[in-house]
Design a protein around this nucleic acid. Sequence first.
DNA 1: CGGTATCCACTCCGATACTG
DNA 2: CAGTATCGGAGTGGATACCG
Lengths: 117, 117
Amino acid sequence: MKSYCKFESALDILIGKWKPIILLQLISNGTMRFSELEKSIPDINKRMLTQQLRELEYNDIVHREAYNQIPPKVEYSISTYGQGLSVVLQVLNDWGESHIEHMKELYGAENAENEPG
Amino acid sequence: MKSYCKFESALDILIGKWKPIILLQLISNGTMRFSELEKSIPDINKRMLTQQLRELEYNDIVHREAYNQIPPKVEYSISTYGQGLSVVLQVLNDWGESHIEHMKELYGAENAENEPG
DNA sequence: CGGTATCCACTCCGATACTG
DNA sequence: CAGTATCGGAGTGGATACCG
């Protein structure tokens, strides 16, 4: 049996309320400006968007390109290194999808995606 | 490009301070009693162990077998359905391992596993 | 032995206001 | 446009005591 001892560090990178949807947007749309991300993600605010992007940038998943001009223009995209995450996200997505089905079988269709109250 | 729209629900199941290490223990050791888990995970307390186990049980990842006897005996193991997670954890583990290396290259060996302050 | 109940600390997140 | 600063509430986790 293999060790599995490092999967916490992978998790850490994906954890954060808005990181999944941010990654989703960047994967689907390629390069996006800050304001485009803001518009494409309803209910997020600037503070959270900035914070989550900074963490993803720190982990070299997202690339930030700032143009020195007025008004400012900053573009975000999945970094070259970050492309490697796509396999992981694909696996998580597939398993997540089937898990939703499994939960429906166990608990019925309503409210079946998450934890108990 | 595929949709990736369900990987949040997979994440939800793995998120929780002690879930990774609990899963690790059960995967490595098979069936374990409550007190064995408690001993094998330094710094966890009963409340947290119970809570995280309940959530994993709710999601049908962990199976709970209670024997009606005094003193009580309760055994936990990865459920049959939960075995399907191993592929996911393997992928996360592999990527996490290489990511730790990547962070070391970027930021040096010390303290390179997680987010910025 | 295998839990609950209670209380407290801390972190995460949201709302809002301000800035270069 | 693309942020930062500040504040407050909710949720998550820790310590401890108690229970069947």
